[in-house]
């Protein structure tokens, strides 16, 4: 039976009740089904003829058809291939920017001695609390004046300026865990800070860099607000904006299957990371308390 490991082993009053863990499993399995049902249902709906989407709760379609996928793909003036490409470009550049800029700043905070370090570190932590709405409008005016609106620059350039201070904090925590003797020895040998950063810190920090990269990718991929404000021309849309246009253009009336098909495709990268990098995701959350 279950429950004979972990905390249940201890305790003289533990009567080892198998029915308790059976009941618990039943509850958890029930909850799992409830959690997953909407997602599975959306997946199955994307394979159905549109008229069959409403008024059924079953997961197995009467006829499996892939028609909704091409129909959804070309359902708008601009096809979803463009949207996916735009999202991919923005996400990949954001990952590169975040990993580079945040690790540079984190290295300075964790390892370099300079006057004002504690002060700037406190300021950096302070920016974590700042809701982005407070900077939103002047930033928009700035990017408008630079002629960047309707390009990916307002979405990507801030990442190269370490605007996601959360990841600086994450990396500082990790860098501090790397034994100082390593870079002190390298310094004795005349290594420059740059070489210590590049040849010692970064190679030893792959787990945290990977965590930062994955979360940056997922958050950028999912981001709706940024693209909504800065991208107005449909050819520059991301997947999220494309889906939103799909909802609006159809009014939700006709092509639900096509909409679901594109929704499913938009979730594919997230599923990919979920399946192959789950340990990193879960450890990232468990150790740093990320919000999602």
């Amino acid at each position: 039976m279950d429950g004979n490991r972990g905390t249940e082993v201890v305790g003289l009053d533990d009567k080892r009740k198998p029915w308790v863990s059976l009941l618990l499993h039943a509850l958890l399995i029930g909850a799992s089904i409830l959690m997953l049902y909407p997602l599975l249902w959306m997946l199955s709906a994307s394979f159905r003829p549109s008229q069959e989407i409403f008024n059924t709760t079953t997961l197995i379609p009467s006829t499996v058809s892939l028609e909704a996928y091409p129909r959804g793909w070309f359902g708008l003036r601009v096809d979803f291939g463009t949207f996916f490409w735009n999202s991919l470009v923005i996400s990949v550049l954001s990952v590169a920017g975040n990993v580079m800029a945040c690790s540079l700043a984190a290295f300075a905070f964790a390892r370099l001695q300079f006057r004002g370090r504690n002060f700037w570190f406190a300021i950096m932590l302070g920016t974590l609390m700042l809701p982005y709405h407070v900077t939103l409008i002047p930033q928009y005016v700035l990017f408008l004046n630079l002629g960047w609106v309707n390009s990916i620059l307002p979405l990507v350039v801030p990442k190269f300026l370490a605007a996601d201070a959360f990841f600086i904090f994450l990396m500082v925590q990790f860098f501090r865990g790397i034994p100082k003797e390593l870079d002190e020895a390298a310094m004795m040998d005349g290594c420059s800070p740059w070489r210590i950063y590049w040849r010692i810190m970064l190679p030893l920090s792959m787990p945290v860099l990977a965590t930062a990269a994955i979360f940056t990718f997922l958050w950028t991929w999912d981001d709706f607000f940024g693209p909504l404000i800065y991208l107005n021309d449909m050819r520059t849309y991301t997947v999220q904006l494309g889906l939103r246009s799909f909802v609006d253009s159809q009014g939700g009336q006709s092509d639900w299957a096509g909409l679901f098909a594109m929704s499913i495709l938009s979730l594919v990268p997230v599923f990919f990371f979920f399946l192959f990098f789950q340990r990193l995701l879960i450890e990232g959350i468990a150790t740093t308390g990320m919000k999602r």
Partner: peptide, 11 residues
């Protein structure tokens, strides 16, 4: 964990 990861996507 999965629903929380899917989070705020439009889908």
């Amino acid at each position: 964990y999965l629903p929380s990861l899917l989070g705020t996507s439009v889908a």
